[in-house]
Structure formats: structure tokens, C-alpha cells
């Protein structure tokens, strides 16, 4: 079966972002970018399913600037077979991304679409669910175990309080949680081979999708600073402070 994996180019998770002085957003110039960590887990899961002989072809899709080709190449070095970049310099919000992915699903007819549960830049946690709704697919969000057999996917999900297992008819959407797997590193020969794998470049207009933002960002500010605390020397002093000064115990 064919699997589609969506990947997003985001600020590397190790970077401590800074808000721009004019409050229009965060500083992205000259900041290290990388594949979103949850998307990396999605690629890894698709590759593992391919290694088990369940998935036969992995198509990796990214929507964003020209530079997102780097993230598609990374996914191909990890084992994806071909790539599709929907290139746009504009801000594309989750609903528009979901519509573009739905159009690609209509063309490619995958049995499984794997996404990360959320991108670490906008922290939305929406795209997979929205795609599933638009395509009429079942969804297995926050997946920590995925099994595909007999035309169905069994997905164990991380929920508040523990785990839940659901059975989904295929085609289905799965979004990855942290504990689904540990992504591998790309080996140098595979990075070289990935450069030769096919990568189609499209635009949102090719799919007839209007990507106009539905949510307007009015301003972005740094969070309120916490006032500097103190170091105490002994447990006695700590307990005294908590009782008399902070009055929390």
C-alpha cells in the first residue's frame, strides 16, 4: 500500500526563539531550521512499515517555501521514495494545509497518511484531524503504537490518564506522538542517493486551493518574565519561606 507522510520545515527545537522588536512575529532570519521532530517520527514509522513489507511506496509532502526541499530530501534520505513540494512563500494555516493534503490524497489514493501530532512552531495540533475530516477518513491521533493488518489499522493512542486502542478502517490518518519510535539518522550514502529521487514542485493554485489565512495574527509578544527568585541554604529555610512568605503550604 501507499503511504503519504507530511513534513514541516520549522525552527530547530534547540533554538531559543526571540520575538521581533516590532511584535510581528519571531525572528526567523539566520535561525537554524529543521524537520519538525514529530514529522521525523512520522517518516520513521512509514519507513518501518515499508521494511515490514506493509507499505510499498512512501510519498513525502511538504508545503512551504522553496527551502522546504531540504526537509523533503532529508525524509528521502531516511527512506521515502519520492517527494512533492507545494511551494508558496505565503503563510499557510492548518485548514489550508489540510485542503492541499486532501487534494494530494485524491490524486495519490494512499491507504495511510502519517503526520506529526503538532508542529513545534505554531503548536496547533490540528492538521491531521482536519485532513481526516475533509477526506472522510478515520483518525488515530497521538499514536504510540501502529499496527496494520487485514485492511485495518490498530492504533494505540496516548490519552489523558493512560492509553486507548482504536481500530480504524483504511484509508486512515495517523498522527505521531513522541513515544511511537526513535527516528534513525540518515547515512551519508543515503543522503547522496536521496538527491536523485524524484521531487515534484507544485503550487497551491495547481490544486485549486485558496490558502488565504482565516486567522490574523495581530501581535506576538514575549511571555511575562518571572521575577528572579532566590537560592535558600537549607530545607528549614525553604519550608519557612513557603509557609510565611509564599503561604502556599
Amino acid at each position: 500500500m501507499k503511504a503519504i507522510v507530511a513534513v514541516k520545515r520549522v525552527v530547530d527545537y534547540n533554538v531559543k526563539v526571540r520575538v521581533k522588536a516590532d511584535k510581528t512575529g519571531v525572528e526567523l532570519a539566520n535561525v537554524k531550521m529543521a524537520i519538525n521532530p514529530f514529522c521525523e517520527i512520522a517518516v520513521e514509522e512509514a519507513v518501518r512499515l515499508k521494511e515490514k513489507g506493509i507499505v510499498t511506496e512512501i510519498v513525502v509532502v511538504s508545503i512551504g517555501p522553496k527551502e522546504a526541499q531540504e526537509q523533503i530530501r532529508t525524509a528521502m534520505a531516511l527512506g521515502a521514495d519520492r517527494g512533492i513540494l507545494v511551494e508558496t512563500g505565503a503563510e499557510v494555516q492548518p485548514l489550508a494545509v489540510a485542503k492541499l493534503l486532501k487534494a494530494i490524497c485524491d490524486q495519490e489514493q494512499p491507504q495511510l497518511v502519517i503526520l506529526g501530532k503538532q508542529a513545534i512552531d505554531d503548536d496547533n495540533n490540528q492538521t491531521g484531524q482536519m485532513l481526516a475530516a475533509l477526506a472522510g477518513y478515520a483518525q488515530g491521533t497521538f499514536a504510540s503504537v501502529v499496527k496494520v493488518e487485514g485492511g485495518k489499522a490498530s492504533v494505540t493512542r496516548e490519552i489523558d490518564g493512560g492509553f486507548q486502542t482504536v481500530e480504524l478502517n483504511l484509508p486512515a490518518v495517523v498522527t505521531t506522538d513522541l513515544r511511537l519510535n526513535e527516528p534513525r539518522y540518515a547515512a551519508l550514502p543515503n543522503i547522496m542517493k536521496a538527491k536523485k529521487k524524484p521531487l515534484d514542485v507544485k503550487t497551491p493554485a495547481d490544486f485549486g486551493v485558496d490558502v488565504t489565512p482565516r486567522v490574523k495574527t495581530l501581535k506576538v509578544e514575549p511571555p511575562a518574565e518571572r521575577s528572579a527568585g532566590i537560592k535558600v541554604k537549607t530545607v528549614e529555610e525553604l519550608v519557612a519561606k513557603l509557609k510565611n512568605e509564599a503561604k502556599v503550604i
Binding site: 505554531d122 503548536d123 496547533n124 482565516r214 495581530l218 514575549p222 511571555p223
Partner: peptide, 28 residues
Amino acid sequence: AQISEITKVISADTFERPIYAGNAIATV
């Protein structure tokens, strides 16, 4: 659209929410 994890209501259509793991607060 959906607006995720609002932490403050400014008006009926304007909300605050944290982005970048809480390192920035967006008013949307």
C-alpha cells in the same frame, strides 16, 4: 479555522495563545 489552546479572551473574535512552546504569546 480552529484556534488552539487559548489562554485569554480579548474580545469575541480575538484571543491570546502561546506559540513556540510558550516562548511567545500571539494575539490572534
